[in-house]
Write a protein that binds this DNA or RNA. Structure first.
Lengths: 144, 144
DNA sequence: GTCTTAACTTAGAATAGTTCTAATTATCAC
DNA sequence: GTGATAATTAGAACTATTCTAAGTTAAGAC
């Protein structure tokens, strides 16, 4: 789906470079924040976390950088139901489980063959670039 | 998943009644609009269509009624990527294909066993009430 | 090294989509 | 009909996001 690359801060500079973009302190800190706590934060939550390290950053920059990371395929933007977009640095194929009682979101790894089976339901003439699978329900125990 | 019921205007009164809600002209017209043109309209688009029949309806009522229909399981609210919520009166299990070139959304019927296979990837402790599958890509030919 | 140019960040204004509030109107049970 | 409850309405308020225009930083040409 996307080229193999390990989800580390180092990957950032490489990916940006291949897209003709610069690695800036803001982009690094924001990517670091996403890697550090993978709880699918909103842009506002990222903003709050980044400000502890970089108090002068602006919210507009957070939006800009998140968008850049999404463009570089280092981060996925996640939208289930109305409400703010959430950001996820997990590059492996995975689904999302949205726990309605806690409001939290969990990554569910997907075996490669499942995505093939799912895509097989598409009639001829439909060419899918990506598939998203979202569960909604309750998780008994666990966290994230 | 939801009780068998045919997606006709008649179903509306029954469903509302069993939820202790009233069937009003506004709710009927809005549901009719959704059934008539199943192109996953936004609340604004529903508002525009409803106004040709009922020029005095307010946008707030459109939002209220759509929410009511969603609560009654007569309509699904669909959210892929930031942007307005779209509404879909298709009650059969189906996925959505979002055509990036035209911006349109197509229903893809799902065989019952596929949803089982997909749900089977959930680890113990995860109890899913619903699954949503969204494709993104290009549809060559077709419309809707 | 300095100049030029383009990329990036910033603050605040603007916009889009949705929800809230308070007042009015319609409907139902009696 | 009367009272209680539900639904609708207009407009204000709110949230999430994007836009704008100015300022800053970095990279490459010379």
């Amino acid at each position: 789906m996307s080229p193999a690359i390990s989800a580390t801060p180092d990957a950032l500079a490489q990916r940006l470079a291949t897209s003709g973009l610069r690695s800036t302190p803001q982009r690094e800190v924001i990517y670091g924040v996403l890697l550090k706590k993978r709880d699918h934060p909103t842009a506002d939550e990222v903003y709050a976390r980044v400000r502890t390290d970089m108090p002068t950053i602006s919210l507009a920059t957070v939006y800009n950088c998140l968008e850049t990371l999404v463009q570089c395929d280092l981060v996925r933007a996640v939208n289930f139901e109305r409400g703010p977009t959430r950001y996820c640095p997990n590059l492996r194929p995975h689904a999302h489980f949205h726990d309605e009682s806690s409001g939290s979101t969990h990554d569910i790894d997907l075996p490669a063959d499942l995505l093939e089976k799912v895509s097989a339901v598409l009639p001829p003439g439909y060419d899918a670039k990506s598939v998203e699978i979202t569960f909604r329900g309750r998780a008994t125990k666990n966290s994230s």
